[in-house]
Design a protein around this nucleic acid. Sequence first.
DNA 1: CACCTATTTAGAATCATTATAAACTAGGAC
DNA 2: GTCCTAGTTTATAATGATTCTAAATAGGTG
Lengths: 132, 132
Amino acid sequence: MQYLDKLRNSGLRPTKQRLQICEVLFNTEKTFHFTVNELDKKIKNNTGNKISLATIYNTIHAFEKKGYLKQIPINSNQTYFDTNVTDHHHFYDLKDEKLIDLENCDVGPINIKKKINGKKIKSIEVLVKLED
Amino acid sequence: MQYLDKLRNSGLRPTKQRLQICEVLFNTEKTFHFTVNELDKKIKNNTGNKISLATIYNTIHAFEKKGYLKQIPINSNQTYFDTNVTDHHHFYDLKDEKLIDLENCDVGPINIKKKINGKKIKSIEVLVKLED
DNA sequence: CACCTATTTAGAATCATTATAAACTAGGAC
DNA sequence: GTCCTAGTTTATAATGATTCTAAATAGGTG
Ligand SMILES: [Mn+2]
Ligand SMILES: [Mn+2]
Ligand SMILES: [Zn+2]
Ligand SMILES: [Zn+2]
């Protein structure tokens, strides 16, 4: 199993469910964006198995904490996650409600001139909304 | 009433409730960020009146549509709104769960090099997450 | 005033997410 | 292998922000 070590090294027991979710999330050419609902459907399709929604939520939150997933800041009725955990930004197509990656090289360097005392920058995320 | 015309000119009837909400939102030195819950409390405090939550939701959505409020893209269980409708960006203090304005001059120009066919940029929003 | 439509409202409905608590399991000790 | 224990899964209930509904109310116009 190619994800056994990834999970073990993270202190997460490599359960059947987590391994299946890893397959769906990480065994792909391209990274992608998803909601929990979409992931649920994808798991059913790809594996023929049903994993409890509670487990899916538990797992993606565990993966997020370990840095294997990122949450994308966007206002939607559902939360979007990203399997691309490199620093990058997003287009958001308002009509299609779809996210599109903006690689770091697609965006000029971002220069934050303001400082807040006692705080440091954890991340800088750009959301570019698109219309027709 | 200083907000009568603002509402009339927008095609919104200047009802008692909308005028009160205008007072709370716009009759201040500084702009601010708020959730619907916070606004609800603020209305009760400032006016002694209770406005139905449904009306508050209706009103802020109407104001948003007219461009008097902006929604801030952030992942939270509640939606954040902003009375500062100029182009600007945000710090988000992860510990205090507070938003802080980054004026346009606090952020260097943002250069989006990628283009999507048939789509044009509606807005560019930067979210800078802060930790201790 | 009379009328029409926009608006307000309490309460119900929706629905994404989280909590609960019981059953199950991975993995280490023996 | 068996035992043990903490971690995990699961069905299900609970939560809570937001939206919907439909009846009552209030602007605005003539
Ligand atoms: Mn999370
Ligand atoms: Mn809205
Ligand atoms: Zn992405
Ligand atoms: Zn702001």
